[in-house]
Amino acid sequence: MLFAFVCTDKPGHLEVRQSTRPDHVAYLEGLNAKGTLKFAGPFLDDDGKPSASLVVVEAADRAAAALIAEADPYARAGLFASVDIRPWNWVFNKPEAA
């Protein structure tokens, strides 16, 4: 099952995001190599700076998805004010259907 993480940064935490980014990217690359990561990227604020993240992963259930989200270096560094984990159904432009 797919799960979407909508992770909203704490205000004023851009430096935490920037300093933790190499570890975050390495973590996502590891998930990608296992086939767990489907896609990911930042939401941008009005100034074009990252202010939140969208990550979609495949996991057995919500508990497994939560473990993936909690292990992200961004989460471990305290970047996020909130992390919303939702089951998600990929309908349009799904790569397997192309």
Rank of each mutant, 00 (worst) to 15 (best):
S53E: 11
L54C: 12
A75W: 01
A65W: 06
P22E: 05
L31G: 12
P11E: 10
Y27N: 05
S51L: 03
K49E: 12
A63V: 14
K10F: 01
A77I: 10
P73A: 02
V83C: 05
L54M: 11
Y74P: 02
G41I: 05
W88M: 10
Y27S: 04
F39T: 15
D72N: 05
K34M: 12
V55T: 12
F39H: 10
P73G: 05
S82Y: 05
E96Y: 05
R86A: 14
P73W: 03
E29T: 14
V6S: 09
S82E: 14
S19Q: 15
P95R: 03
A4Q: 09
K94I: 01
N89P: 01
L31R: 11
A52M: 04
P73K: 01
D23I: 00
A40P: 01
A75S: 14
Q18P: 04
G35N: 09
V91Y: 03
Q18F: 01
D84E: 14
A33T: 15
D47C: 01
S53T: 09
A98V: 14
L79E: 08
H24K: 06
I68A: 03
R21D: 06
G35Y: 09
A71M: 02
S82D: 14
D9P: 12
R62L: 13
F92D: 11
M1N: 00
A71S: 13
A65Q: 06
G12Y: 02
V25R: 11
D45N: 15
F80K: 08
P73N: 06
T36Q: 07
S51T: 15
N93Y: 09
A81Q: 14
G41W: 03
G12R: 04
G78Q: 05
L37K: 04
A97M: 12
G48H: 09
A33Y: 04
V57Y: 04
D45G: 12
V91D: 02
S82W: 02
Y74M: 04
L37Y: 00
V16W: 00
E70L: 05
F92A: 15
A64Y: 04
D61E: 07
F43K: 04
A64W: 07
V91W: 01
D72L: 00
A64H: 07
V6R: 10
A64N: 07
W88Q: 10
A71N: 10
T8H: 10
A26T: 11
D45I: 08
E96F: 08
F92Q: 14
F5R: 02
D84T: 15
V91L: 12
A66K: 13
N89G: 05
A52F: 03
A98N: 12
L44H: 13
V56F: 00
A60H: 05
L31E: 07
V6M: 10
D45L: 06
A63S: 13
T20F: 01
I68C: 06
F3H: 09
E96S: 15
V91Q: 00
L2P: 03
D61I: 04
A65K: 09
A69S: 12
W88A: 13
C7G: 12
G48N: 09
A59K: 02
A52L: 06
E29P: 00
S53N: 11
F39S: 14
A69I: 07
A69N: 01
D61F: 05
E58V: 11
C7V: 08
E70W: 03
K49H: 07
